[in-house]
Amino acid sequence: MNALEISDVWKYYGDFPALRAVGLNIEPGSTLALLGRNGAGKTTLLRIIAGLSRPSRGTVKIQGADAREQSTRQRIGVLGHGIALYDELSAIENLTLFGRLYGLPDPRKRADEMLERVGLARVRDGLAREFSRGMRQRLAVGRAFLHDPEVLLLDEPFTALDDRAIAVLQSMIQSMRDRGRTIIMSTHQLREALELASHVALLQRGQIVHTGERMQEMLDDTGWLYRTYGDN
């Protein structure tokens, strides 16, 4: 069974088709870099996969089940543009809250472990609003990985991260890859993404114009992919 099956997905905003007949199959354990220029439809596609939006037409199956099913959402981790943390709650309260929402057996203990992992154990009782930007980003990474998701969706994960947050995120993605988890990330930062990716999909004006394994040429010259498969 594929980790993700997207069949003939269309998404309209009014009359404008943001996604056009998108089809994509991703095998379990793959790390897919979803690439494309601004407005290509990457975020729209990730939101549909995450169950945050419904396609106008077509289907999305995650491990054979609908994206909006409760059991499916249990297995997905999402790190979007926003940090998705409550400013008025402390670091430990934020992670414990999401641990409870994901039905973890001991959310407090798991939250403590994750704070240790992202280097925020020292400030576990500090309010999120009092954290620096980098600390908030690391906390957001901890939230997304808290329930050890089988499928991880990352939307521009490296954008605006500081060095330490990038290191934390890369190490956690690496650890997920080693344990055979499926990762889908949309990004502009081609180098970071391609170093981690096993597969690549290129979106252009709402259509997938290329999918396949990551090739050495892509790493050697990050413009190669766009020149070869894109408009320019």
Binding site: A50, G51, L52, Q70, S71, R73, Q74, I76, V78, G80, H81, G82, I83, A84, L85, Y86, D87, F98, L101, Y102, G103, R143
Partner: peptide, 15 residues
């Protein structure tokens, strides 16, 4: 809406 928390709630297994 602050920090896109609503998205995190909708993406979580909470019905």
């Amino acid at each position: 809406l602050q920090n896109d928390c609503l998205d995190a709630l909708i993406a979580s297994p909470v019905s």
